[in-house]
């Protein structure tokens, strides 16, 4: 929040700051899948476009509640039960809640401070088989520890298209990981990857299990590949920018530089002589 004080001081105009913050915070909160504790402490709600009813109201599909959010203070002020028209049909809810249960189990195991939610993105009023529908499964894990000069977030969005014609579920995933360390410096990690996969459309429970398995598999693979990128960093990638030691494997011979520039002059003269 130090950044806010800085921006406020820079702008030197409270009204301008308020207007800018009112624009910037909702964008930031949604892009970073910020999670906020529900006022009744029944869980966390993720700020995402998938659950956005209007600028300040967000649906929590698990508890079927709508939370009013203060984007700038990053807290929830009110909570009300969702209206029927804001919720999916019983048929869709069966698929949604089954996936939510499986996904929550997985997120609980894999992320010490992770939260997740499953939203219906299309076809929420379908009453039974015979039509297509879509979900978005969102996972967010964040750490803020400015006292240790570091912040970080893991965000995954998995979109699922349940196709009635093909009897397949198309899965697309995007994982973004960011980390920031700023003690006497400023170093940031920024990574992302996209996945595409499909699985057979089965019963709600079977779909939930196979989709969660796919997500678990790709996210663990991704973590391993991040670790591998770090392993290669110091000996390969970073070496391509600047070596630890010169090609000669000894410190640079500054004392011989006079000789060196003489040799160069000589070489030049020879080159001219040719």
């Amino acid at each position: 929040m130090r950044g806010c004080a800085d921006v406020r001081a820079l702008l030197g105009d409270e009204a301008v700051y308020e207007a800018a913050a009112a624009e910037a915070f909702p964008e930031y909160n949604k892009a970073h899948l910020v999670s906020l504790e529900l006022p009744d402490r029944s869980g966390d709600i993720i700020i995402t476009t998938y659950g956005e009813l209007d600028k300040n109201n967000y649906l929590d599909p698990r508890t079927a509640q709508v939370a009013t959010v203060n984007h700038i203070k990053q807290n929830c002020t009110e909570l009300r039960p969702a209206a029927d028209e804001e919720l999916p049909s019983a048929y869709i809810e069966e698929f949604r809640s089954a996936l939510d249960v499986e996904l929550s189990k997985y997120v609980g195991e894999a992320y010490p401070k992770g939260v997740c939610a499953v939203y219906c993105t299309s076809g929420k009023d379908i009453e039974g088989p015979g039509a297509n529908f879509g979900f978005a499964a969102v996972i967010s894990a964040a750490r803020r520890s400015p006292q240790n000069f570091c912040n970080g977030s893991w965000r995954s969005i998995w979109t699922l298209e349940f196709s009635d014609e093909s009897q397949f579920v198309e899965i697309k995933g995007k994982i973004q990981v960011g980390a920031h360390y700023f003690e006497e410096g400023n170093v940031q990690l920024d990574t992302n990857i996209d996945y595409k996969y499909s699985t057979i459309l089965q019963s709600a429970e079977d779909c939930a299990v196979s989709v969660t398995n796919i997500i678990r598999h790709h996210e663990s693979e991704y973590l391993s590949s991040l670790e591998e990128s770090y392993l290669n960093l110091s000996d390969a990638t970073f070496k391509d920018l600047r070596r630890k030691l010169p090609v000669t494997r000894t410190l640079f011979a500054w004392h011989n530089t006079l000789a060196l520039s003489l040799t160069r002059d000589l070489a030049k003269e020879l080159a001219i002589g040719k």
Partner: peptide
């Protein structure tokens, strides 16, 4: 491994 970027200044 997708896109992996580290950047910074000291």
């Amino acid at each position: 491994s997708g896109t992996f970027n580290l950047s910074g200044s000291i």
